[in-house]
Every structure is written in structure tokens, then in C-alpha cells.
């Protein structure tokens, strides 16, 4: 079988119940989006684990590189003033 005929990889996101976000459940191979949805139903929701499924072809996902985590996430590390505990208030103060 030639390589170009291989079924592409899809990432599967499932909302387990209304009110919750879609969460990444795993991946699977399928010829197209419709088949990916049907296969995701069988592979990831055999026991009522979901009320909604998203499928995205894996190649369309752009991911950050963990080797660059330093420069990417470091700017948040020294900004303690973004947290409520940074501010000194008297203990008597209520509802704040």
C-alpha cells in the first residue's frame, strides 16, 4: 500500500456533558472527518462518555515546543502582582 493512501491521523475532543469543555481524549486514523466522528463514537464513547465530539486533523494543530518553555512561560513567573495575595490588606476587611 502506498503511503499517500494511508488514512490520516485525527485528534479527538469530547464534551462529557453540557456545561463542561471539550477535552482531548486521544487520536485515531480515518479517511475523512465524517469517518473520524463515527470512529471516535465507537472508540472513545462506548459507555456514554460524551454528548459532543470534535475531530481535528492532527496536522492542523500547531503546538508550542517544550524546549522553549523558558522564554514562552517565564514572563508570567515574576508577576506576583497578578495574584490577589500580593496586596497587603488588614485582616478586619471583609468581602474582598
Amino acid at each position: 500500500m502506498s503511503d499517500k493512501k494511508n488514512w490520516p491521523l485525527w485528534e479527538i475532543f469530547v464534551r462529557s456533558k453540557n456545561g463542561l469543555e471539550h477535552r482531548h481524549f486521544g487520536s485515531l486514523h480515518a479517511a475523512d472527518a465524517e469517518m473520524a466522528l463515527e470512529n471516535a463514537r465507537d472508540v472513545y464513547t462506548r459507555r456514554n462518555e460524551g454528548v459532543s465530539i470534535w475531530v481535528v486533523e492532527s496536522k492542523h494543530i500547531t503546538a508550542s515546543n517544550p524546549e522553549h518553555n523558558g522564554e514562552l512561560f517565564e514572563p508570567a513567573q515574576d508577576k506576583v502582582y497578578r495574584h490577589p495575595t500580593f496586596y497587603d490588606l488588614p485582616d478586619e476587611i471583609k468581602h474582598m
Binding site: M1, W7, A31, D32, M35
Partner: peptide, 9 residues
């Protein structure tokens, strides 16, 4: 079957 599914897609 796999090839046909790909061709159909």
C-alpha cells in the same frame, strides 16, 4: 476497503 474509503474521501 481502506483504499476505497480514501478514494471516496
Amino acid at each position: 476497503v481502506r483504499d476505497a474509503a480514501m478514494a471516496h474521501a
